[in-house]
């Protein structure tokens, strides 16, 4: 290959790298803001210190996930502090009794079965293992939705992978020799 040919080829490589690393994420992900400017840190300090104070299990062992407005308005029927975020939250959601449409970073496809209680109670995994240090964050990270699949780009955990993928689940199960059958985690 001539020098000129090498240069043209390298320009092509560089152009693709630039497009793939810088341009592609902008195109494929659409950034949404959460409906409420929520601080886990403030709530952890003032309302409850444990995750399951708000993200509770029901009596039958199922996980209730993001708390509903009832739980929020239990304390926030009227403003408790003086922040703008709280004022907005009360005006937009508590007063009209409208459920905020939270964007769930950890949302899984319909065919996935995941039992929180088995992982938390039986296997004693910490919430942070998959969800990262959400509990101490001051702001909610932006929700970057994949335009094709519809799922979040990141769950902001520190499981070593960008999202809760099947590979991440299988890797952990394999390590603990708990890899039995597909239907363990699929429904």
């Amino acid at each position: 290959m001539t020098l000129r040919g090498t240069i043209v080829f390298s320009i092509g490589v560089l152009a693709a790298l630039g497009a793939g690393w810088a341009g592609f994420p902008r195109v494929i992900y659409q950034t949404h803001r959460q409906p409420v400017d929520f601080s886990h840190q403030i709530h952890a300090d003032k309302a409850g210190s444990k995750c399951d104070d708000c993200h509770a299990f029901r009596a039958d062992g199922t996980f209730a996930g993001v708390p509903t407005l009832d739980k929020c308005s239990g304390c926030h029927a009227a403003a408790m502090g003086s922040t703008v975020a709280e004022k907005n939250f009360i005006e937009r959601f508590v007063t009209p009794q409208r459920e905020p449409e939270w964007l769930v970073y950890a949302r899984q496809p319909e065919n996935v079965y995941f039992s929180h209680i088995t992982h938390v109670k039986r296997a004693n995994l910490k919430c942070e293992r998959c969800h990262g240090n959400q509990g101490t964050s001051n702001t909610l990270p932006p929700f970057q939705q994949d335009r094709i699949s519809g799922y979040s780009r990141d769950i902001w955990g520190h499981a070593g992978r960008p999202a809760m993928t099947m590979d991440a689940c299988v890797a952990c199960h394999r390590q603990s020799h708990l890899e039995h059958s597909c239907l363990d985690c699929h429904k």
Binding site: V8, L14, A16, L17, A19, W21, P109, D146, S149
Partner: peptide, 24 residues
């Protein structure tokens, strides 16, 4: 140039993301 672009693209997340996305 196209050959270089293809080779370069393999070192970016784009093609791999698109494969996963199509499956999802």
């Amino acid at each position: 140039f196209a050959g270089g672009a293809v080779a370069g693209a393999l070192f970016t997340p784009a093609p791999w993301r698109l494969i996963t996305d199509t499956a999802l």
